[in-house]
Design a protein around this nucleic acid. Structure first.
Lengths: 172, 172
DNA sequence: TGTGCCGTATCAAAGTCTTGATACTCTCGT
DNA sequence: ACGAGAGTATCAAGACTTTGATACGGCACA
């Protein structure tokens, strides 16, 4: 688990000096709430995933290979959101377990396409049953309509991030 | 950055064997989308935060101490979502920089209350200006109404996670 | 007034991810 | 056909976090 923000507390701040902003609002911002939500989901799904033998990272790799067979390590890294170097150990581990196969690309002697084995497909299905169950729980909590809405809103956030430019640091 | 799921790809899957589920849906589930959104925000905010001298982790600590002065290390750990052991190095670093102070609890010789120094408050304000700017960008992308809605929906997700019980693993 | 229990703090070791640097292969333009 | 450039894979080192284990201090109940 990675910390990075995420906060919640039911404390009523007394007051502060002049240059202080709205503390109540601070931790209620979307960026904070988003992080908390992700942490909560993360903490919930990790234990059951490990019970079927995969860490969250490994599941991410397997799930993406299930959807998009033939991905290379670098492609996988981008899709999953990490550096290419971080993928290698995961791939090695999965190959050792016989869940995925490395196959050299037909036209590129250098790069390797990755693919699930039959055994890997079975394991992935087991893990995905858990994830599906979790998602259904969320859907039940929100209701169908809000569930869909949440997906859409989150997608907007994802797409809007690249166009953000940080403010200049005016520490005058 | 921590990977753990997060996936997106615009590939139309040909087809598959029998026991296969809906791939298109798989990566569109809220748990996945949520993770992607968080990763996107994380990737966007990290560089500018480092530019003012704090990592995302350090900012999380500072922000929470700003809102709730006098937190102990363990409390901080819970609020922020990490283990108590992970807090210690962060606290040490911030103390060395003079941004926070450790003060032994009045009644517990063992535990230490943490508090921002004046200098720490200034630094936190600089970092928070960035976060506020980011959140405003998100608000602009969504519109005021959907921005508020997203906050509410995410809160529901956070509150609903603890009540989830993983499905039994029926690998029959 | 003990004694058991809970919460806090910290040391140590292991795991995972990142940044930095290097080598290799194909593609493209001249 | 050749050299530059882009993309991929991997080694090495450092940073950060987690799990495991240990020690200390207050609190509640017998």
């Amino acid at each position: 688990m990675n910390l990075n923000q995420g906060a919640v507390s039911s404390l009523t701040v007394t007051d502060e000096t002049a240059e202080t902003f709205d503390h109540e609002e601070m931790l209620g911002r979307v960026a904070s709430t988003l992080r908390r939500a992700d942490l909560a989901v993360l903490a919930a799904k990790e234990p059951p995933l490990r019970k079927v033998g995969v860490s969250g990272s490994l599941y991410a790799v397997l799930a993406n290979l299930e959807v998009t067979p033939g991905l290379t390590g670098a492609e996988l890294a981008r899709v999953v959101g990490v550096t290419p170097q971080a993928i290698t150990p995961l791939v090695v581990k999965l190959v050792e377990r016989g869940l995925i196969e490395r196959r050299t690309h037909p036209r590129h002697a250098n790069i390797q396409e990755l693919q699930l084995t039959d055994s890997g497909r079975r394991e992935t299905a087991r893990a995905d049953r858990i994830m599906l169950h979790l998602d259904n729980h969320i859907r039940d909590s929100l209701g169908d309509e809000d569930y869909q809405r949440l997906r859409v809103l989150l997608d907007v956030v994802v797409k809007s991030m690249p166009s953000w430019v940080p403010p200049p640091d005016e520490s005058s």
